[in-house]
Design a protein around this nucleic acid. Sequence first.
DNA 1: TTTAAATAGTACTAAAATGGTCCTCTTTAT
DNA 2: ATAAAGAGGACCATTTTAGTACTATTTAAA
Lengths: 155, 155
Amino acid sequence: MLRISKLTDYGTVVLAHLAASRSERVSANEVAAATGLGLPTVSKLLKTLARSGLVASTRGAQGGYQLARDAASISAADVIDALEGPVSITECSAHDSHCGLEATCSVGNAWQRINVAIRRALTEITLADLLRNHLPTPRFEFAGTPINVESAKHK
Amino acid sequence: MLRISKLTDYGTVVLAHLAASRSERVSANEVAAATGLGLPTVSKLLKTLARSGLVASTRGAQGGYQLARDAASISAADVIDALEGPVSITECSAHDSHCGLEATCSVGNAWQRINVAIRRALTEITLADLLRNHLPTPRFEFAGTPINVESAKHK
DNA sequence: TTTAAATAGTACTAAAATGGTCCTCTTTAT
DNA sequence: ATAAAGAGGACCATTTTAGTACTATTTAAA
Ligand code: FES
Ligand code: FES
């Protein structure tokens, strides 16, 4: 349910690596090597992240990337916004689409509240948090429902 | 960010209609007419919802659907689980995939926590909530970010 | 007992989103 | 000058999603 794209997942891995190499400038090549992701993919991700201001880039030889701000002030919401755009939980967005049956429908409002709740959750978790708990593949359950988030098959 | 499928959105509309027709048995045809969605689509949705136990179905002439339990005890999480399966926020799920770089990665854990937070938000909102706030297309902002959830272009 | 109104189940297709790669241009340290 | 980077797109293959169609089964009612 409610899956984020693989690219976003990878993006988080990349950012985590940048956060680990505190303030050192790291090239896309190095990141790719360190994370095991493909260079083209890493490159694409870093470009996008740079465009949205999460990482700072330096061009030219000896160039590379570094986090634009402190890991503690980059939230999961920031990452998702950067990588998947600020689209919201339901498809009908403010401008381009107008549902023919707004009168009939009683649902939009609730999704909106859900969206807000989710957004809050995403805002509260930061990159710095990611760096902590470096535990290996923890597979646990929550309220009876198995939670399956532990490892992405990168590359 | 983090979009649910259009089908799930529609499914919610359908369920909302069932909830509105309290305990009356409603045929897929009627639901389609009332919501403006296509009959095949509504039919498909109702079948799925029936299979996962959210609605009870009666076959044969004069048959139809009705909510299996009280609207207040059907959560958004239930709906999403029914319509998109209990897949979790990142792609790598418990069984079929094993990330080659679990050792390197420090991210899975955090996504897991995010997943839990989101799930809680989804569990707390019920179908009954959807039925309230029958307001017309409210477009508001939250913490600076415009929230664009108000109307789906059905059909 | 026949008929018609419904759902169940599943298969299929078209369209859209996603993931991944590649190519050309610009910048800059050496 | 040269080579090592990043910037910015274009591109295609694969997968997912949305929507439709078809057949079989069930059951109320004529
Ligand atoms: S993305 Fe975390 S183990 Fe692969
Ligand atoms: S889904 Fe169309 S107005 Fe809510």
